[in-house]
């Protein structure tokens, strides 16, 4: 029972990270109708920024995180301006291939700058933990912070898109860009803001991910990126609560599959679940049915 609880908490924690990454995928998809496959690599950049800030310059981890958020936000905006904006009228395949290109570019740039030798990411929470049931159940502070961060981000984003003028404008753009322009909404700026938010979230996810799994290499972001993309599709791409549910479920499935079935097969099982879900519900768990307009 205790082991089960332990796995469950680990699953929720890993899933929270997937959810934060998935939010970036899903928001960008919702507004720009594109899959930003470079999103995972922005995570990696965020992790490196925090790593150097903390390990090389001795900054406080919170400051490292803030720096990572700032640089990733900027990176997200620049990527959108340089790589995706010129392709606004292009076919979605061209945009997709460009996104994969940006992903490789970031990975290789990281390799040039920082080599492919793994960096040991510092434990930002100093190994502090809460022990329950006579020490048989250990919950690290890192785990708690990760889950709390995910909840806070979800609440803030839900309020932002539901209540604020800019948030409503984003929803308007995601439904109908032409009509949004007729309202006076600057669609390009809205897309830019979306990339900024998604990339800031990627920085947070990168720092949380590397505090839990400390080996940092230039490809660190790619697997979590793909899994978070899976989580976004699983939950229903374009849906914010879908990203949360998809992310957390995926994290739990991955940890349970590794613990009770086979560590080697855990990734395969994760993707198998995705395939099954998409066969049964092609729009994901919370996805909206897309109806053709008459």
């Amino acid at each position: 029972m205790i082991t089960f609880l332990n796995h469950l908490i680990n699953g929720i924690s890993l899933g929270s990270i997937y959810a934060i990454i998935a939010l970036g995928y899903t928001m960008v998809y919702g507004i720009a109708k594109m899959l930003n496959f470079a999103h995972g690599d922005v995570i990696m950049v965020g992790a490196y920024v925090c790593f150097f800030a903390v390990s090389s310059f001795g900054l406080h981890p919170v400051l490292g995180l803030v720096l990572a958020i700032l640089i990733c936000t900027l990176l997200g905006i620049v990527i959108e301006k340089l790589a995706y904006k010129p392709l606004r009228q292009a076919t979605s395949l061209a945009v997709l291939i460009t996104a994969i290109g940006v992903s490789y570019f970031l990975q290789n740039a990281a390799q040039l700058l920082w080599t492919s030798n793994p960096k040991m990411f510092p434990d930002l929470f100093g190994g502090a933990a809460i022990r329950l049931f006579d020490g048989r159940l250990t919950i690290t502070v890192g785990t708690l912070v990760t889950i709390a961060a995910c909840i806070i981000i979800m609440v803030v984003l839900t309020l932002f898109t539901g209540k604020t003028r800019m948030g409503k404008a984003m929803r308007a753009c995601s439904e109908d860009k032409g009509a949004a322009q007729l309202m006076g909404i600057n669609v390009n700026r809205t897309i830019s803001v979306t990339f900024a938010i998604g990339s800031a979230l990627a920085a947070i996810a990168g720092v949380l991910l590397c505090s839990a799994y400390p080996s940092l290499v230039p490809t660190t972001g790619s697997m979590p990126g793909i899994k978070a993309f899976t989580a976004a599709v699983f939950g229903g791409i374009g849906s914010i609560p879908g990203a949360l549910i998809g992310g957390v479920l995926l994290g739990i499935i991955e940890i349970f599959a590794g613990a009770y079935i086979s560590t080697q097969l855990s990734n395969a099982i994760v993707f198998l679940v995705l395939i099954v879900v998409l066969l049964v519900r092609p729009t994901g768990l919370l996805g909206k049915q897309i109806r053709e307009k008459v």
Partner: peptide
């Protein structure tokens, strides 16, 4: 200059009041 487009193109997933809020965006 306001344009009510063909097919109305209201924001179908938003509430009536949020649609009106978007109309007053500027």
């Amino acid at each position: 200059l306001a344009h009510v487009p063909e097919g109305r193109r209201i924001f179908l997933q938003m509430t009536v009041e949020d649609n009106l809020t978007m109309g007053a965006f500027t």
